[in-house]
Amino acid sequence: MSTAATTSPDTPSTTPSEVALHAALASGERPPRVSAPVACLAFAGRSMRKIRHVPEQLLDVTITPVLFLVMFVYLFGGAVAGSTDDYLQFILPGILVQAVLFTTVYSGVTLNTDMTKGVVDRFRSLPVWGPAPLVGAAVGDLVRYLVAASVTVIVGFALGFEAGGGVLGVLGGIALVMLFAFGLAWVFTTLGLLMRSPSAVMNTGFMALFPLVFLSNIFVDPSTLPSVLESMVDLNPVSHLVTAVRGLLGGTADAGDIGLVLGEAAVLTLVFVPLTTRMYRRA
């Protein structure tokens, strides 16, 4: 602050005036019940406002993908693919997936932190559609995914990535990753309600995510792996997602690949949304 401390920040608030108080109390008529979508949007707005108050919280979402991209392309590119340019073409869709999927763990961490605060009691005592706070937060998290995805793609283009799929392919790839992340995040919100502390959620979440990410086709072509590993990689839903996204970005999209990912996202959502909701209500 540039101004001298003439007014203390803790200026005592004015005492509530009797008249204004009575008037305010008299005018609180109850409007009709809010619809479920509006309630979800209101909760999504809550997440947005928090980002606006503390934009730094987007920092790791922004920096991690850049680090990974630069590190992998220039450190391993020559060794793995013969040239950094070829490796960039190969790895960018994978880094896009990885960057967004890592972000989903934070949904669980955020929910776990929320649960220790009294405000959850207020939300749960409101006459709104029960899952609204959770769905709203999940919708708000889409913004984080979008930031992580955009940063990855933009840095990729800056390094010389060529998208054979064009603008539509890139947008489609980002959309598919975000959809899958939306489903996966519910696994971590369930975890967020099971665990006792935010750091436990964080550790368990990443412990679960690391093998999925590294035992996938993000970094290497699975056909170069021993056959046991190769079949594990082929079964991994993250590999399915990477394959579909590679197709979309490269302009060789396969409807079957995309359909498989959409199905897996739907299963995650249908299993874990009711689970999280039930636990949230009983908490």
């Binding site: 109850r30 605060k117 009294g118 405000v119 009691d121 409101l126």
Partner: peptide, 17 residues
């Protein structure tokens, strides 16, 4: 829920807003 309100023992407002 349509007819009650709760001011809990822990602050039941969002501290980050």
């Amino acid at each position: 829920r349509r007819r009650i309100s709760l001011t809990g023992q822990l602050a039941s407002v969002d501290e980050e807003l």
